[in-house]
């Protein structure tokens, strides 16, 4: 794969959070939609890597016409080309990834955000890597590229327990990055202005293949946890432990207080529990 092959960055257009109330964001309202911090970090890294490797950046999104705003912002920031795959906002990740992989067949590096804000599955990058049968490295917290050979990316990824691993990833590859990795540069004014009327390739896509099952949506509640069976000779002791009777702190007290009173209440609780003298 030559270093002049472009770097692609996948940007997901997401409706804003749905809890805004009557004045706040509305799912159908493009004004409040945008791309995630992770996607912005991916764009910034794509621009930096392209600079180091002497190649260009193609920004791509699978989404409705409104998503072109994200592409224009990417062009303003320095992307060379912008592609929109015409798909619904809620298209299935498998269809999205398939179409992205088709369009990105020539990209040397495909950069993604680690998770999209709404769906949060982090699966599209892995799906794209599968379709192209290339290496993947997901959820990266640092990226560097070997400019000498331009054939390997060096990256850092989190493992459990606070450990990290250093990866050498052969090109072509799919990388996904965390939002804190980089801050997107501010677009220079001339590019920002030119991007408003810049050309965007719009690609028609076949009708949806996959359809997610309809879901019952409820407010989040933590799942009841499995409890180890209590030990103890006496039945009453076991029961007490199970029900926490007598030993349990008063879990679940909620108070509405003015800040000074709230602070005093917190200090009292910390004292009572023995965290403060």
């Amino acid at each position: 794969m030559s270093a002049t092959a472009p770097i692609a960055v996948c940007l997901k257009w997401t409706p804003a959070r749905l809890d805004g109330g009557p004045l706040g964001p509305d799912a159908a309202d493009d004004r409040f939609a945008g791309i995630s911090p992770a996607d912005r970090a991916a764009l910034e890294l794509a621009l930096r890597l392209a600079d180091r490797l002497g190649t260009t950046v193609t920004a791509i999104t699978a989404g409705p016409a409104g998503a072109e705003r994200a592409l224009r912002d990417a062009l303003a920031a320095g992307a060379e080309r912008a592609v929109r795959l015409d798909m619904a906002t809620d298209a299935d990740s498998r269809d999205v990834a398939f179409e992205l992989a088709q369009s990105l067949a020539d990209a040397a590096i495909v950069l993604c955000g680690d998770y999209s804000l709404d769906r949060g599955s982090g699966s599209v990058p892995a799906f794209v890597a599968h379709h192209r049968r290339i290496a993947q490295a997901l959820g990266l917290v640092d990226i560097d590229v070997d400019t000498a050979t331009a054939a390997t990316v060096h990256a850092t990824r989190r493992l459990d327990g606070g450990r990290r691993e250093l990866l050498a990833i052969p090109l072509p590859c799919v990388l996904s990055v965390e939002g804190s990795l980089a801050t997107l540069r501010r677009a220079p004014l001339p590019r920002a202005l030119a991007s408003r009327s810049a050309h965007i390739d719009v690609v028609a896509t076949p009708p949806a293949h996959h359809h997610g099952a309809p879901a019952i949506v409820t407010a989040y509640r933590p799942r009841a946890r499995v409890m180890p069976a209590p030990a103890g000779e006496v039945v009453l002791d076991r029961l007490r432990r199970l029900t926490d009777a007598g030993t349990a702190p008063s879990r679940g007290e909620t108070v509405v207080l003015e800040p000074p009173a709230a602070a005093a209440r917190i200090v009292d609780a910390l004292r009572e529990w023995g965290y403060l003298p």
Binding site: P259, A262, A263, I266
Partner: peptide, 27 residues
């Protein structure tokens, strides 16, 4: 008052966290 963190809490305080933080520090 109804977010999951409050449901998990032994003591849930409904107030502006920023102001409570300042108050706690001065207290």
């Amino acid at each position: 008052a109804h977010c999951p963190m409050m449901q998990l809490a032994d003591l849930g305080v409904v107030a502006d966290a920023n102001v409570v933080l300042d108050e706690l520090l001065s207290l």
